[in-house]
Design a protein around this nucleic acid. Structure first.
Lengths: 143, 143
DNA sequence: GGCATTGTGCAGGTTTTTCTGCACATTGCG
DNA sequence: CGCAATGTGCAGAAAAACCTGCACAATGCC
């Protein structure tokens, strides 16, 4: 996988807004960036296969090829390997214990964990099948 | 903050084993690395202030100056900003819902979240004070 | 002493990431 | 037409990350 900081910023915008041409990405970029610098990122991303582009008139429209979910998982996996001895549980525990979540948030998370556990009970002895996709939210704003 | 991949590997070893000289770090390094390459990392880390060193005879012993916790938090914060709209809760939810945790792990996590919520109830209206340090485990092996 | 071992110093190299400049082509408008 | 605006292509520069080689100094052992 492996996206650099700059590449990731571009991908974020493509994930969020969909197909865009360089100038549009440039506008939405978190900090000021020259058009040529941005296009430089795009060509690297194209090379690496993370984006694709479509020609319309003289302009190119870029869109994400790599899914946000994949990129996220890849980063979480790295983090876990580096800091939590490879255990996802450890990461969650650390987050629960050391980060400043409110009482309400903790209770909700507790509930969600319990629900997921119940979910698991139903398909015992099937270690690879998963995901009910009940409340799939990520990518923006639900605080 | 900002540690590169290579620097982080060095820091991990220093966090785990404490003070060491270059040759010792080199031995423990996850992949093969030349002594000079490793020392190159160490001098960058020294420059950046993430490690300190102590001379004993002709040799230097290096140890971590930056705390593991700080580095971890910094990376989690980055991840959250990039993928979860700045919400820690979102990160935990995503982990709970999409990652392959066992039923037992989920139940335990649910319990821990509930406990932490209870903890919070006791010091209402104190948003900054925290941490009971009941089961402080991270950095290695509890799967 | 001679010589391998273990350590540092340091002056670099290569590759990747980040960013720049400029030439040039097309389009729209006065 | 002239010319600004908008787009691409491309050839890099600059900085950071990653890695190497070699000189040399101290130590221990024959």
């Amino acid at each position: 996988m492996k996206l650099t900081a700059g590449e990731l910023k571009v991908m974020q915008l493509l994930w969020q807004y969909g197909e865009m041409k360089p100038a549009e990405i440039q506008e939405k970029f978190p900090e000021a960036i020259k058009n040529s610098a941005l296009r430089s990122y795009l060509s690297i991303l194209l090379e690496k296969g993370h984006v694709k582009r479509r020609q319309v008139g003289k302009a190119y429209f870029y869109s994400a090829k790599t899914k946000e979910r994949r990129a996220f998982q890849s980063m979480v996996t790295d983090l876990i390997e580096m800091f939590c001895g490879g255990s996802k549980k450890s990461l969650v525990m650390t987050l629960l214990e050391h980060e400043d979540l409110t009482r309400e948030q903790l209770l909700e998370l507790s509930r969600i964990a319990a629900e997921n556990a119940a979910q698991h009970a139903k398909c015992e002895a099937k270690p690879a099948g998963k995901k009910s996709n009940r409340t799939n939210n990520r990518g923006a704003s639900h605080e």
